[in-house]
Design a protein around this nucleic acid. Structure first.
Lengths: 208, 208
DNA sequence: CCGGATATCCCCTGAATTGGTGATTGTTTC
DNA sequence: GAAACAATCACCAATTCAGGGGATATCCGG
């Protein structure tokens, strides 16, 4: 299992190197302090897993992940950083990172994360996992959808699919005016006043 | 740290019980094979963490999580099951579960998961973490948005926020007709023909 | 310097949406 | 049994959208 490291802090990089070489089952195939010639380096080394810091000279780690995954989708990248803000976490994950661990993670956990990531799994530091999770559970307005009736929810779904009043009327075998009534009610309950707002709210609050 | 178990398989339940009582830092405060009188039981025991199976007599574990979190938001629930399908995972997490581990998880990992969950973190089995992650990375049509110009993307964002042509014109200091032009172009590029469709596509493909 | 892409603006027309104010029929709830 | 709600339908007026024409101006690359 070949590992490459990108980390600008020398002390930290060296301790990671030590961790890898003494792990028994991993081979350190490269260790860099910047993202210069990123793709050439990756292509030459072909690591199985890349440990990537976020704050790096040259291109930052988040953009680096994107490039790596675009050109070498099979390589799994694990972020390894001090940053714990949602922006950086989500940007990294959206760009294709498979893991996200903080720098205060215990050494054995780091190795564990690398192994999981190498096998196609994912590993998050618990606090990061929690943030990811919160992104799922983002229904901070719990009563906001439960107050929709079945019929209203049904019609809202059709709205999300981009249908017009007329089409919805046909689909549901009710009259155009009834669709109109339901939608008026939906707008009232969701505190919106257009289809696009309703659709946006429905998707963000997960009615999809 | 008080732990309650809901698990219908007797063998498995007993091994969990053993695991908890021999852990050193946890106290087993309840162990049940069904979800009958769920809330009364929880209220009487007030566990810190609930280990919840999905397939249970009475109410299933997914609905049980919802009830627990609704009435006792401070209690953290960790799912513990053989199911690994997206539906069950996402339903559980959306209902408020803080962890999701498979039944083949090593005992020490189970304890680790409980401890993380108790501290407000989250723990996923790597394969589950991977599925959660995939939910983030679902931009299967990469070229579909890059072809939007900066201006078009900007206006699309305003559409997502539910603004009318007129408001967008004011916000961007351009004329109503220019907004109209841009939106026509956006529709063309996204292959849609209404605000709501454009909004739906924008959000699903993550322009938010 | 020309073609293409982008951004800006204008007009028109028909269709769709939005927001009122109703009404009727059930069902559930107190 | 009244009150509350859900689902159904109707009419009307004002506004907004969508799609179809155009027209400039700028910038960029060949």
């Amino acid at each position: 299992m070949k590992i490459a490291i990108f980390e600008d802090n020398q002390k930290f990089r060296e301790s990671l190197e030590f961790l890898i070489v003494t792990s028994g089952d991993m081979e350190l195939c490269g260790s860099f302090e910047d993202t210069n010639r990123l793709l050439q380096r990756i292509e030459a080394l072909m690591p199985d897993v890349v440990l990537m810091d976020i704050h790096l000279p040259g291109k930052n780690g988040i953009d680096a992940v994107k490039e790596i995954k675009e050109h070498f989708p099979a390589i799994n990248v694990c972020m390894q950083t001090v940053f714990e803000d949602d922006d950086k976490i989500f940007a990294s994950l959206c760009n294709g990172a498979s893991g996200y661990i903080l720098k205060n993670t215990a050494p054995e956990k780091v190795l564990q994360a690398i192994r999981e990531v190498a096998e196609g799994g994912s590993f998050f530091t618990p606090s990061v996992a929690r943030r990811v999770l919160n992104n799922f559970q983002q229904q901070p307005h719990p009563g906001e959808f439960t107050q929709l009736t079945d019929r209203e929810r049904e019609i809202l779904k059709f709205l999300v699919e981009g249908m017009s009043y007329k089409i919805i009327a046909d689909k549901t075998f009710i009259s155009y005016e009834t669709v109109h009534s339901h939608i008026k009610k939906i707008y009232e309950k969701l505190h919106v006043n257009s289809k696009s707002e309703a659709v946006a709210k429905a998707i963000k609050r997960r009615l999809v």
